[in-house]
Nucleic acid binder design. Structure first.
Lengths: 230, 230
DNA sequence: CCTACCGATCGGTAGG
DNA sequence: CCTACCGATCGGTAGG
């Protein structure tokens, strides 16, 4: 008797290809039949989501696969039907994180605005992506627990992310919307601020992710010094 | 049997450069005689330093005590003469980090400047402290690997650090040198930027810690938007 | 799909 | 006699 249906837990505010969630324990031959492949994807995603939650709460190394399995009401060997090993779980979490922050780059790129305005779009989108479970896991667990081979699989994406922002700053400096500055350090400062936010952000806080993102951008946009009253 | 005093306070007056570690097996009655207590302190600090380096390179969990001992040309049991356990090593590293960043608060507080100028002093000092091995370890390893009891021992200091900066911002807003903003988010953004820098900073890079610190502050002080050419 | 169990390696500590 | 340290091995637990 399997009372556990991990896919029933999924509620996905995911920008990416979030699988539509239906009650998986519903009529097996009802109007909304699912192929076993679809069910497998849902289960895989449920594991991914719960794993990210636990990694964020306790840390990657402090979370055992027995614990993860227990929280999903399955047994440890079941996890290996969907993932190669513990490393693979984190890798797929990080892959999901990249899926969720990629629109931030695309939306900024597609817009026909000046540098600082494009940066605003990016910062707002990216910060919100980092407030999700997968984004937070990317910030909190990072790539260091991964085996070198898994890490190398992700580095191109992160390098792209970095150069994207740096180019955006350079573009803004060129079009005059951004003050001349060290784009490398500005880029790192920006990511640092956004990632640090992901660290302490709690969904039950006072401010919404949108409001936080706007405040962060505002500080970087106009600075802290009061120009009117020096 | 534990002969080491894990709770022993770190008396090392070392904000920045570590004491030059001399070969302990050198001339026993040379001109520079050391008491066994002094030798013990030097050895303890040498372990601390090497541990921080390894934790920064590979991570806390990826570094075994055997590996640490090997790199110090001693055996693992020797480590337990100076530390209670692996947890205690990280705890003392973080204690050293707090010793190194505390002057940043004191110097800012002692100065008789306005809010934004005090903030400048703090940011410059703190960023440099974070570019040291102990500061980097604080950022990279963090408090999460610690047992709850060890973590609780440090949280007051970090809470103090946070409120210090937030109060500094409030002070600056009051004296008119800092533009009105959400001090909570500004504080987190600042720490995020400074900590992220510690993450990628390499001593062999182009820019000195001082130059980097100045750039970081400049971005937060004046912002990215070009006010002359809107 | 579960119970049971492995090979490897960890942190920590015994005796000499 | 004490300190520092070694070779050998402990119990416990991780991934699989």
């Amino acid at each position: 008797m399997n009372t556990a249906e991990p896919s029933a837990k999924i509620d996905s505010p995911v920008p990416g290809p979030a699988p539509a969630v239906v009650k998986a324990n519903a009529v097996r031959w009802g109007s909304e039949i699912q192929s076993s492949a679809e069910q497998g994807d849902l289960k895989r995603f449920a594991i991914l989501r719960k794993a990210a939650e636990l990694f964020n709460e306790r840390g990657f190394y402090e979370t055992s696969l027995n614990e993860l399995a227990k929280r999903l009401n399955v047994t440890k060997p079941s996890l290996y039907l969907y993932f190669k090993n513990k490393d693979d779980i984190l890798l797929q979490i990080l892959n999901q994180a990249t899926v969720e922050f990629t629109p931030a780059m695309e939306l900024a790129k597609e817009s026909d605005l000046c540098g600082i305005e494009k940066l605003k779009i990016f910062v707002l989108q990216y910060t919100q992506a980092m407030s999700g479970v997968f984004g937070k896991c990317m910030v909190l667990s990072g790539l260091s627990p991964l085996e070198p081979s898994s890490r190398e699989q992700l580095t191109p994406t992160f390098r792209l992310l970095d150069t994207f922002v740096r180019n955006l700053l350079a573009e803004g400096i060129k079009d005059g919307s951004i003050a001349p500055c060290d784009t490398k350090i500005a880029t790192f400062s920006l990511f640092g601020a956004m990632h640090w936010l992901a660290r302490w952000y709690r969904p039950d806080g006072e401010l919404s992710p949108e409001a936080i993102a706007e405040q962060v951008f505002l500080i970087f946009e106009t600075g802290l010094r009061n120009v009117r009253q020096p």
